[in-house]
Amino acid sequence: MAVIAMTRETATRGSEVAAGLANRLGLAIVHHEIVEHDIADRAGMPETEVHRFLEGETSLFERWTLDRKRMSRYTAQEILELAAKGNVLIRGWGATYLLKSVPHVICVRICAPMLFRESVLIERLGIGIAANARREIERSDAAHNRTIQRLFGVDWEYPSLYAIVLNTARVPVADCVEHIVRLAESSTFQETARSRGVLMDQIISLRARTAVERQFGANSTQNCFDVHVFSGKVLLTGATTDEQMIVEAVRLLQGVEGVTSVESKVAHVAFVPHED
């Protein structure tokens, strides 16, 4: 089941490449409405607020008040869960960064020089002045780069995130599709038990961390709880003065979907009263 994560710059004809791949490989293209709706459900936030954040449209005050760590985790969980379904093409939302370590996922970047992008946008939207097209492109690029930086602290232009980078000013859309299809059909990018396990461990880790945060809130941070997952087995680390919290955390993690076993290495620290 092919999984493609794609980053495309505005006005590079990346949407045409995505459509061609979906047609050739029978993939579902994940549209932003689906992702935003599901992230909003996970985070308990209005869809409009999630949309504004992911599109880089939030005000400075909104960015201060939003819990970026929580938004990052919910976004990551949604993208990984979508990838686990297979036969999908995920555009944007940091998918290339989140899925780069999963062996069967093809991470693709579609780009082009500014002059080419200006001409595409002028043709597409009927913008008569190249300078106006350039401003719109620069605004879009900056907004999306800020969002990825805030969520995951990475630069979406970094080459090592991608298996293949295609310049649509030099490589026609049809040829871009062919290059990526050949990768999808190669043995390198076939899903295996090992590659599936890598993806599932990432998903289980996010599910577990979300469960711990919901159950214990600020206490999970204060006690330095952390979750490590290996082949579905969870290792819980940290330190706390509350022995009962350790018991509750282990019981909680045992109920997380996909977890096969839980081991605690949380240190129980005796409380020492402060003497004046």
Rank of each mutant, 00 (worst) to 15 (best):
A19Y: 07
A19C: 06
G20Q: 00
G20I: 00
G20E: 00
L21H: 07
L21I: 02
A22W: 04
A22K: 08
N23T: 12
N23Q: 14
N23Y: 10
R24D: 04
R24Q: 10
R24I: 05
L25E: 03
L25F: 03
G26R: 05
L27F: 02
L27R: 02
L27A: 05
A28P: 01
A28V: 08
I29W: 09
I29Y: 07
I29F: 10
I29K: 15
I29M: 12
V30Y: 06
V30A: 08
H31L: 11
I34D: 13
I34C: 06
I34W: 10
I34Y: 12
V35C: 00
V35D: 02
V35K: 06
H37Y: 11
H37V: 07
D38H: 15
D38W: 14
A40G: 05
A40C: 06
D41K: 15
D41F: 11
G44A: 09
G44Q: 10
M45S: 11
M45Q: 11
E47C: 04
E47L: 02
E47T: 07
T48D: 14
T48R: 15
E49L: 13
E49Q: 07
E49A: 14
E49K: 10
V50N: 09
H51F: 11
H51M: 12
H51D: 11
H51I: 11
R52Q: 09
R52C: 08
R52Y: 10
R52W: 03
L54E: 15
E55A: 06
G56R: 03
G56Y: 04
G56S: 04
E57T: 05
E57K: 14
T58C: 00
T58L: 08
T58W: 09
S59N: 06
S59E: 05
S59A: 06
S59R: 04
L60W: 04
E62C: 06
E62T: 09
R63H: 01
R63P: 01
R63E: 10
W64D: 05
D67R: 06
R68L: 11
